[in-house]
Structure formats: C-alpha cells, structure tokens
Write a protein that binds this DNA or RNA. Structure first.
Lengths: 170, 170
DNA sequence: CGAATATTGTCTACTTGGAAACAGAATTGA
DNA sequence: TCAATTCTGTTTCCAAGTAGACAATATTCG
C-alpha cells in the first residue's frame, strides 16, 4: 500500500462525494477505463471499438439494415453513414438496396470483411477473457449479467462458459 | 409489428454475438443509456454530465488542482482547460495559483458555484435514486458496487443514503 | 550554482460524434 | 388517385474531445 487514500488509478485521493453512487458517472468512468485497456492490448490491430462492433454485428446479422444497426449500437444515423462509407471504401462491407424498400440499405461483409473478422476474433476474445481489471471471473460475469439486464440484452445462448477458441484443433 | 422478437430497447432483434459478453461493449452501451436517461430527466437544468461532475468534485474537494481533477475524471488536460475556463466565465469557479508551485492551478467554487451545486443536488440525487432502468434496488446497488471495484473507487463512507434495503445479508 | 529533465497547464490543429435540414421512397387517408 | 405524412439515409454545419507541441515552473544531479 502506498500513501493514504490514493489508489493506483489516477484518483489521487480525490473524494467523489455523491458521484460515488451515481450509476451514470460510474458507467462513464468504466467505459473510459475499458477502452483504455482495449487500446493498450489490441489497439495495435488498427480497429477501433466502434468499427469493431459494426464488423461483428454485420458478421452476426448479414443483411442487417443500416438504421437498425445504428439504433442497436446507439450510434446516430448521420454518424453511421460516415462509418459505413469508410468501411465500404476500405472494402470491408458491401451495401445493397432491397427491392421491397428502396429507401433502406442492407449491409453485408465482403470476403475481406469476413477475413478481418476472422483475424480479429481470436485477439478480441482473448482480450475480453482478461479485460476485467481487479475483478475476478465471478465478479466480472456478474457485472456483465447486470449490465445486460440494465440494457435488456439477452444472454448469449452459446454462453461464456464454453470458450469458442477451443473449437480450433480440438 | 415489423420485427420479430424485438425488445423495447432499440435492439430490433439483432443478435449481438460475441459482443454479448464484451465488458467494454456493455459499458459503452450502458453509459449511453444512462446519459440518455440523464438528459431526459434533468437535462432541462442546463448542466451536462461533464460539468456536473466537475462541479460536484470541486465542491467536495475545494482547492483541488486542475490536473488532479482531470486525471480523476479521465478528462484530458487540454479539454479540462476549456471546461474550467467556460465555468470560470460563467462565474461558477475561481482559479488560484498556489505559492508553492506556480505551475499549477487550484480550483474553488464561487458563491454562485455553491448555489448552483445546492440547487442541483436535490434533482440529481432524485434522478440517481430512480435511474436504474429495469434493475431493482438490490441489483442496482450491486452493479454500482462492482463498478466501483472495477474502477478502484472506494465506497462512499456516508453510504447511499437511508436505504431500507441496505445490509440485507445473505 | 547551472544544465538537463520532468511536470503543469495552454494553444493549435485534428478527429469523433451529433443536430437539424434535406431528398427520395413508402405509407396513409380523403 | 394523389396530396399529406412518415420513414430512411445523407448532407452540412457545429460541439465535444484528443494529440502533440509549447511556455513556464520545479526538480534532479553533475
């Protein structure tokens, strides 16, 4: 233990007062902390969190409409337009206008996009399996469960218990 | 009904795949969700989350140095400079250069700043006491506890208030 | 002491994300 | 049918936040 009150976290003995019990405040700090860890560990892969989530969601939901993707990720549609265009220019996603509603746009991964997802999956899952800071496995699982409940996101049917990495090579 | 299995949350039947178990992803969505609720409920008070946290932290730590405030809130110092200047121009904060280190700046609330904090405290605490979405009191308290552990933020010694559910041991 | 180094806040330029207006397509209602 | 309205993505402009260089002050060490 070092000097009194100060944690090793940048909170240099500051008292947080009522913010200590503010869910929004804690979520904001938690997100910043998690993204910092993300950049430290897999930032070198050159894919930022937003792009990562778009890639994984399109991979999981081929043909998803752009606006549905935006509202699912809580990204504004104006911003989603820019992100998708950049990813299209990078050759990762393909855009399609369906015949039954020519206002909308459906999104698909290109072969390059699928390859990118394939090469990202391992490092990302590895990162997630240890991106838990001071929490042990049980606490981290509980935290994620509570966040999913808060967000009304269903539990992953495949479950975190079985590590998809084990699929390769038995 | 257009979508099948859509929740009332904007997640229109989209499968989140591996992101379902990503702490960073869940924290990001949680933060956006919490800030949305914040704006819906007390955005009309004209104080945004960042300013709010600065006001409360300076109120709780009179004379705190600007850089300490920045690193505690995970706000970059360049940005903190702008925020503090705006709050100084608004007459809420007073800046002082201490004799023992003339590089640094100490922050204090003005009388107007203290008045602002006083008038914000009630609405903010009221908001926090019900800003829990679908979580019940016990789940929300547990979520906050886990987030504080993740962030290495000490529990509030004064406690979350006169909560009848507290210390219900298991 | 005095030169090299580190720290603190600030400045400029840039990136990220959002608000509001818009255009084209679909839907509604007379 | 066809005018009014709504929906979807886009454009433009602006605010929020970051990166990196900088000036002033402190600290370290010869």
């Amino acid at each position: 233990m070092r000097d009194g009150g100060g944690s090793d976290d940048g909170t240099l003995g500051v008292r947080f007062g009522p913010l200590t019990d503010s869910l929004g405040f804690l979520l904001r700090l938690g997100q910043l902390s998690a993204f910092e860890a993300y950049y430290d560990e897999i930032g070198a892969l050159g894919v930022r969190p937003g792009e990562m989530s778009v890639l994984f969601l399109v991979a999981e939901n081929p043909g998803v409409r752009q606006g549905v993707l935006a509202s699912s990720l809580r990204i504004k549609r104006a911003h989603m337009t820019k992100m998708i265009r950049a990813m299209e220019d990078a050759g990762l996603v393909h855009r399609t206008v369906p015949e039954d509603d020519r206002r909308s746009v459906e999104l698909w991964l290109t072969a390059a996009g699928r390859a990118r997802v394939a090469e990202l999956t391992g490092p990302v899952l590895a990162h997630e399996s240890r991106a838990q800071g001071r929490l042990d496995q049980r606490e981290a699982a509980q935290l994620k469960r509570l966040l999913r409940a808060y967000l009304n996101i269903p539990e992953d049917p495949s479950g975190p218990g079985h590590d998809p990495l084990e699929e390769s090579g038995s």
